[in-house]
């Protein structure tokens, strides 16, 4: 693993840039633990101060330090994205692998569930949830709901890959070597599916974070937990752009964009590296 990271750092510029960007974002989110102010408190600093040496990213109209607020926000937003991505990847993997490999009525049953999730419009459902649950909605619950809606496309994608893998001769060799279905799926097919899982994790995080921001900006989430969307919501509530308090909106936006680009580049370089043919070439093990 250490060698892998070293090789990637040495030979892949995409990985270097991605790692640096993401390191910045992660560092910021880790700093949340050292914040001098609790995230919910308001009017702890003078409001509307532009970025300065005392307040690096300025302060908000609600008297919060943008830097520390942002560190909480990006931490929660990343956690949110990771949770959604993790849970939905799990769904997509299990359903995609089984559906693609087993075929027949299992495939038909799973895919009809799958297609149902694809056609249900997500935004109205989320808004409906918000109106039913009101203040009881927590970000974890929101993450669970979104995870339930975030796997369907990717399960189809994984299914199609597994279907083509199943038709390849090595699947038969594995079968005739006495491997069980679980072994074939997890040991033979999963490595081919992992690049998809990596790149869709990226897409899924972008999607879930984007949707969370949208909902938060509209005020349909738990706005008291600081998130990137929540910050922009409060900035809008205080007409920050009109009032010239650009730093309230600019820094959250820059941070989330950095996170996106960082994730994207990491996924890109990891995909190139997953293939052992190129890996062997790079390390010079091939004889």
């Amino acid at each position: 693993m250490a060698i892998l990271l070293r090789d990637l750092l040495r030979h892949s510029p995409e990985f270097r840039i991605g790692a640096v960007l993401l390191a910045f974002v992660l560092l910021l989110s880790v700093l949340a633990s050292f914040s001098p102010y609790p995230p919910e408190s308001v009017y702890v600093v003078p409001p509307d101060v532009p970025p300065s040496l005392t307040y690096w990213f300025g302060t908000t109209s609600r008297g919060q330090d943008v830097f520390w607020q942002l560190s909480f926000a990006i931490r929660n937003t990343l956690l949110f994205g990771c949770t959604v991505a993790l849970i939905s990847r799990l769904f997509a993997l299990v359903i995609g692998l089984i559906s693609g490999y087993k075929g027949g009525w299992i495939d038909r049953a799973l895919m009809s569930v799958n297609d149902t999730f694809i056609v249900i419009p997500l935004l109205p459902i989320l808004v409906l949830f918000y109106f039913v649950m009101r203040d009881r909605i927590s970000w974890l619950m929101l993450a669970l709901i979104m995870a339930c809606f975030g796997w369907a496309y990717d399960a189809r994608l994984i299914r199609s890959v597994v279907m083509s893998l199943k038709a390849r001769e090595f699947t038969q060799t594995s079968l005739f070597s006495g491997m069980s279905t679980r072994q074939i799926l997890t040991e033979e097919h999963l490595p081919y599916v992992m690049p998809i899982v990596f790149s869709t994790t990226m897409n899924n995080m972008v999607w879930s974070i984007g949707l969370e921001v949208t909902l938060a900006v509209l005020g349909f989430t738990d706005i008291n937990t600081p998130t990137i969307g929540g910050m922009i919501y409060w900035a809008n509530q205080h007409t920050a752009m009109v009032a010239g308090i650009w730093w309230w909106i600019a820094f959250p936006t820059i941070t989330v964009v950095m996170a996106f680009i960082g994730l994207f580049l990491l996924a890109l370089s990891a995909n190139a590296y997953i293939d052992p043919r190129s890996r062997l070439w790079s390390v010079g093990e091939a004889s």
Partner: peptide
């Protein structure tokens, strides 16, 4: 001539 992850072949 290929150059992959910095190794020329």
């Amino acid at each position: 001539r290929t150059s992959h992850f910095g190794v020329r072949r």
